[in-house]
Structure formats: structure tokens, C-alpha cells
């Protein structure tokens, strides 16, 4: 009983033809790794308010991974159960991390410099929080909470 006829790439090219292909793949891989390593990971922009506060509600690396889960959990607790805790309010994030333009005016979510977009643009994750939520600190009529003692939202800003 004879062996079945060989199929696949090995059958279509000999050893001499495979060597340049492997070399090419290796070059591609090295190039990709170099490009990837050369690209800076997205970082939250530094802001004075964040520096003043010094710490977030969770350690930075944990916030990087879990902030979306935290936001989802907190929103249900606040809106549906009425469990308000200003420390975890979305507006607290904005108070600390809002990026101002050259004129000192905080930029909205339509600006690529907005702190959420500084990462979300690169990761191609669309966040629709700001179709309803305010994306900048409130500055008019005395309601700004940019520099309150705790560095976070006051108790009225937990929705």
C-alpha cells in the first residue's frame, strides 16, 4: 500500500525555497517588534489637580485595567440604588484629570487631548459616557469643585 501523495506547502516547495521565506518572516517579526517597542504606551496626561491629590481611588495600574468595570458598577449603585459615594463619581475623574488647552480652558471630549481620548483613541475603544455626562469641570456660577480639599468631587456630584 503506497503512501498518499503529499499535500500542502511542503509538497509545493523544496528546502531551498523555504529558507528565504523563513528568513523573510523573521525579518518581518523583528521589524514589528521594534516598531511596537518604539511606540510609547498611552499615558494619562499629567494635570495639576491629579498631582495635588496624589492618589486615585485605586492604584494606577489597577485603574488602567479596571476603570470600566468600576464605572459600570458605580453607575448602577448610584442611579438605581441611590448608593451615592462622591469618591467614586465620574465627575471626580474629570475634576482631577481634565486637560486644559493653551488658554487654560478645559478641553471637551471632542478634542483628542481629552484625557479619556488620550488612551481610547489609540485603543480604538469608543466611550459614549460624554453624550450625557459633562466632560469638563464646571466652572461657572460657583459650582466648580476643581480644588476642593479632598481633590475629588463634592458629595453632590455622584450621579
Amino acid at each position: 500500500m503506497s503512501a498518499p501523495p503529499p499535500i500542502g506547502p511542503r509538497a509545493l516547495m523544496g528546502r531551498s525555497a523555504r529558507a528565504p521565506l523563513l528568513a523573510g518572516l523573521a525579518v518581518l517579526a523583528v521589524t514589528w517588534i521594534l516598531l511596537w517597542a518604539g511606540q510609547a504606551a498611552p499615558e494619562l496626561p499629567d494635570t495639576a489637580a491629579a498631582a495635588e491629590t496624589g492618589s486615585c481611588v485605586l492604584p494606577g495600574p489597577e485603574m488602567r485595567v479596571r476603570h470600566m468595570d468600576v464605572l459600570f458598577e458605580v453607575r448602577d449603585e448610584v442611579v438605581r440604588d441611590g448608593r451615592r459615594n462622591a469618591e467614586w463619581a465620574l465627575h471626580g475623574c474629570i475634576e482631577c484629570h481634565a486637560v486644559a488647552d493653551a488658554a487654560g480652558v478645559p478641553v471637551g471630549h471632542d478634542d483628542p487631548r481629552h484625557f479619556c481620548r488620550s488612551c481610547h483613541d489609540q485603543t480604538a475603544v469608543a466611550a459614549d459616557c460624554f453624550s450625557c455626562h459633562r466632560a469638563t469641570p464646571e466652572t461657572a456660577d460657583g459650582h466648580t469643585v476643581a480644588h476642593h480639599p479632598a481633590g475629588r468631587a463634592h458629595s453632590g456630584d455622584a450621579l
Binding site: G82, R84, H91, I94, G108, S131, C132, H133, R134, P137, E138, H143, V145, A153, S155, G156, D157, A158, L159
Partner: peptide
Amino acid sequence: GALTDQRPHMPRGQGTAEGCTLCVHRIDQ
């Protein structure tokens, strides 16, 4: 329509229903 400059404690946005909240954010305080 799209809204901007909402109050921080009262998110409002395009494509959603709304009404009196009895100032729930104040009641909770």
C-alpha cells in the same frame, strides 16, 4: 439633540427620556 454643558450631577443627553427627579441628588444629601 446633542447637549453640552450639562450640570455635573445631572447628565442629560441625546436620545434619552428625562423628567423631574425630585432632586434625587439633593435628597440623598
